[in-house]
Design a binder for these strands. Structure first.
Lengths: 160, 160
DNA sequence: TATTGTTATACTCTATAACTATA
DNA sequence: TATAGTTATAGAGTATAACAATA
């Protein structure tokens, strides 16, 4: 098998043209491929002015859990505290939340959504739901439910 | 609700302490959280000298599809051609594959795994299987199968 | 004109480590 | 000593745009 091969078959080895990649057996590989598709469609659907996925996630948690601290938010999102600073900066710059002092512990800055932030979340929630509905129209409601449950199970397992 | 809040409840708003985040309804969010867990465990399991996930993926495809081109490999992996250069460089530097000339089309460099590459893939496959088995021990065989099928369905939908 | 491999470049996301001010 | 927020920094991983060689 040494030396140059024929151009006629340089794209794939003919014996394997129909083979299913071994990779397909791995959850990790399939998770990544699916994640890339969904997040790319999220960005496309929300546009250049829209919130990035992680900014949307942070805003949703701040609205739902008023006065959450940055450390608490980082824990909920599963990222480091340092990664939150730019994210909260962006939400504050957009006028969607405020850092507020906490009486009794001056280290802490509680995060509080503004009414503009709540409105932006409502609109973004609708856009994100529309994006997922359209993108995942090939999955039935019960398939989506099963998928959610299994993905959440991975997270719960890891936490224990 | 203006002004500083009490330190006693600065971590969460008491009314929402037990609430399930709205985020949990989204496939995208849950995909990302699960993906981050699995890929972090992959890296931990394979160690600093081991292959990174995407390098493992590329090697697996080159071994299974001898003489695949870089463009073909990029297409299979769902990434841009430009992103493959450093990746193939690493595999070549490790001695796991060779770029070979193709007779009849001098633009193309077919990728061929070396025997060291095949051996490395065998060992890495075993390590990756062990990592997924251990990490996902909370999922039954049928749950894993369902999860794989649903994730692949997202990819197939997107391709059409 | 189109394609392959490549380079240059930039952007997003993440992590680690260290700092400060507080506790 | 420990914690909250912050900064600096670096490292993956990805994309876009352009180029030379070749088709």
């Amino acid at each position: 098998m040494a030396g140059p091969i024929s151009a006629r078959r340089h794209h794939e080895d003919e014996a394997n043209v129909e083979a299913v990649p071994i990779l397909e057996e791995f959850i990790g590989y399939n998770l990544k491929r699916a994640y890339m598709i969904v997040q790319a469609d999220f960005r496309r659907a929300l546009g250049d002015e829209g919130l990035a996925p992680r900014v949307f996630s942070a805003l949703a948690l701040v609205v739902q859990f008023p006065n959450i601290t940055q450390s608490g938010l980082a824990r909920l999102l599963g990222i480091e505290r340092s990664g939150l600073v730019a994210l909260v900066d962006e939400l504050e710059r957009r006028g969607f939340l405020k850092r507020t002092q906490v009486r009794g512990d001056r280290r802490v800055q509680a995060l509080v959504a503004t009414s503009a932030g709540e409105k932006a979340l409502d609109e973004t929630l609708a856009a994100v739901r529309a994006h997922e509905t359209a993108l995942l129209s090939g999955l039935s409601a019960s398939e989506k439910e099963v998928l959610l449950t299994l993905l959440q199970k991975i997270r719960v397992m890891e936490a224990s």
